[in-house]
């Protein structure tokens, strides 16, 4: 079995209103730090996953992301880092 470390970012799908992102956007505008920063607020996860090979481990990771870490109805996820340890 090989072990991998993965980082996952979950955000709201395009088209789903993100009130937290809008709130941060407004603060950035008010403080003069940025205009139309298009902030999206999401969640970050880091975890270990094992598998016989990389594709086996990636399949397990995708199932974890779809079943537990995100809700496919309104969220999408991206695997930001996937490294053998």
């Amino acid at each position: 079995m090989k072990k991998y470390k993965a980082d996952i970012i979950v955000t709201l799908k395009k088209g789903v209103r993100d009130p937290q992102g809008t709130a941060v956007d407004m603060v950035l505008k008010r403080t003069g730090l940025a205009e139309n920063a298009e902030v999206q607020v999401g969640k970050f996860f880091t975890l270990s996953v094992s598998g016989n090979n990389e594709s086996d481990a990636r399949n397990k990771l995708n199932k974890i992301c779809e079943d537990v870490l995100s809700n496919p109805v309104l969220e999408s996820y991206e695997v930001e880092r996937f490294l053998e340890v």
Binding site: L12, V16, R17, P19, Q20, A23, N71, V73, L74
Partner: peptide, 10 residues
């Protein structure tokens, strides 16, 4: 059906 998400006013 559907889902419940963060309130509009956060």
């Amino acid at each position: 059906p559907g889902i419940l998400s963060v309130n509009d006013n956060t």
